[in-house]
Design a protein around this nucleic acid. Structure first.
Length: 110
DNA sequence: CACTTGACGTCGT
DNA sequence: GACGACGCCAAGT
């Protein structure tokens, strides 16, 4: 589906993230065919909080595994709570061994 | 209508 | 290897 909006693609990829796994903005941006547009991924996810069905934005972190957008969840602690709820360990606003649970988008039909 | 900012990442110094 | 600058695209001011 090449003619999907940038935001739509972001939402699509994010909804592909399996339970208990996380991905990065850069990987998502690269997966949708716009490498380097990681900022837009975050912008799209910010707007996605009020979407239906909701997008698991808490599973998307930056390259260093930090909870960069926790502020956008209304309650900054909500993102951490959600991640912990999925079995992740959060320390200093970052997922411990996040690289271990990192999930990268497979062949996405662009 | 032009400039700044924003859930980031990569390249150059 | 730390720090700075640019790029990405959209939205807010």
């Amino acid at each position: 589906m090449p003619e999907q909006d940038f935001f739509e693609r972001v939402y699509l990829v994010c909804r592909m993230i399996p339970y208990g796994k996380i991905t990065t903005y850069g990987d998502v941006a690269r997966a949708i065919g716009s490498p380097g547009a990681a900022r837009m991924v975050g912008w799209a996810l910010n707007k996605s909080t009020a979407l239906d069905p909701p997008v698991p934005a808490h599973r998307v972190l930056n390259r260093m595994g930090m909870l960069s957008g926790k502020k956008a969840f209304g309650n900054p602690m909500l993102m951490q709570e959600l991640l912990e709820q999925e079995g992740h360990i959060i320390k200093d606003d970052a997922v411990v061994e996040f690289h271990n649970v990192l999930w990268q988008p497979d062949n996405i039909s662009l």
